[in-house]
Design a protein around this nucleic acid. Structure first.
Lengths: 238, 238
DNA sequence: GTTTGTGAAAGGATTCACAGCA
DNA sequence: TGCTGTGAATCCTTTCACAAAC
């Protein structure tokens, strides 16, 4: 019913409907804007900000246009204002409570990672199933037993769970988080987890990006190791 | 499109070239295939493998078709064979040497992360500028002073550098890595780094995914914290 | 003059659907 | 029968280019 004789119907993205690709870049813009604000910059042009984050000005403007019209033609964007709007769009203005499960090496790093606190994420609790770790003090937090999970989620009102356990424990931890009422989960364990509908799951694979680097490095020719080149069975015809 | 590259992006994609989106998924397939292999599976269908990694069979088949024709109609893919071809495509069959700079919390976690070694990445050296850390033994490696960088790169033939330093030190470390001859860099510090052409830079932002989660959680309505609803300039027309 | 905001065009990626083979 | 491989269609993202606004 959208046929108006036009070649293609207007995409008609409703206001507030921000494309996924844009959302993934907003945190990057935000970080650059924070640096600019610290340096005392009051305004910034799309060209300048794009250069800072290694993007293009057109893409940046289109991204920002999805949030609203916050720039001034001939001038640029006000840094503080943009920080506010992006933060609000990302939902960072209201202090999320985060439950972190697993305080091995990675859990330690995450618990002490300044980037969480400074962006509105409060680590409400550190949990670990290992009795030897329980009671340990990390970044001002005492590690609690994993069995406290339900209580912790209830008392802190946490919506977000972070999994930094070994791969083998991750699915179980994930299930318990869901059962406790957590609806957003960030997984650092190198496994693919299953979650029911209604739960948002994202993952960070520390080795994944390294493998992508490997691909590109391999393409360019490397300096060390085997110079092998076994042929494809079908040699990619012209 | 080398991620953070300057402009100067040659738009043309050559034949036999694998799309970037596919490359980003190959490591995920690889991990699932390793699990299957451990479980003794000899073959796997696109449907089954896609379910394991949370993707679709059509996408999986199209991805694999970029590597060649390694499936058998009516049967599926041989697990071992697929592992080999994906590994080779990613350049994982030749043992990269990696230099890790910064052994704080995150550096510790990365140094001990099994996922590197098991995928063909050898941590050739751990470096830190802090004299107090130098000499420390982590995962069987002794931490060396950052000033050894050139020597380390030369003697190990490392092509890949991993930056796990505080944000403030990252650009300097990056410059030194480039000067030492490293051509692929993985950055965990929360800053955008500048590299010259010919150097491939990727980054992992531990808080970025959390912010994307925050966005989606925010969309759904949250359970805790402020129930505020500061108005948008226009109130989201239906 | 400068810079934003945005239709329109171009380019990629995903999904569809089925031919072809085991 | 079951499943892969792949053109075609669809959807999403980026780039282009310029009118409008300062």
């Amino acid at each position: 019913m959208t046929e108006q004789g036009q070649r293609s119907a207007p995409p008609a993205r409703r206001r507030g409907d921000v494309p996924e690709a844009t959302i993934a870049r907003l945190p990057v813009y935000l970080r650059a804007l924070h640096v600019l604000a610290e340096d005392g910059a009051r305004t910034v042009s799309s060209e300048a900000l794009a250069a800072l984050v290694g993007s293009s000005s057109a893409k940046l403007r289109k991204d920002l246009s999805h949030l609203g019209s916050y720039g001034t033609r001939g001038v640029g964007y006000e840094v503080e204002e943009l920080v506010f709007h992006i933060s609000r769009e990302l939902g960072l203005t209201q202090g999320w409570s985060v439950v972190l499960v697993g305080v091995g090496n990675l859990g330690h790093a995450l618990a002490g990672y300044g980037g969480f606190a400074s962006r509105g994420f409060r680590v409400a609790a550190l949990l670990d199933a290992d009795p030897q770790r329980v009671g340990e003090l990390i970044a001002g937090q005492r590690v609690r037993p994993f069995t406290d999970l339900s209580a912790v989620v209830a008392e802190s009102g946490a919506d977000i769970g972070v999994i930094a356990t070994p791969a083998g424990a991750a699915q179980e931890v994930c299930d318990r988080l869901v059962a406790a009422g957590v609806t957003s989960i960030l997984n650092f364990a190198p496994v693919v987890l299953q979650v029911p509908d209604g739960v948002d799951l994202r993952k960070v694979d520390l080795a994944l990006e390294l493998q992508i680097l490997s691909f590109h490095q391999n393409r360019r020719g490397r300096r060390a190791c085997v110079p092998e080149q076994s042929d494809r069975s079908a040699g990619v015809p012209a």
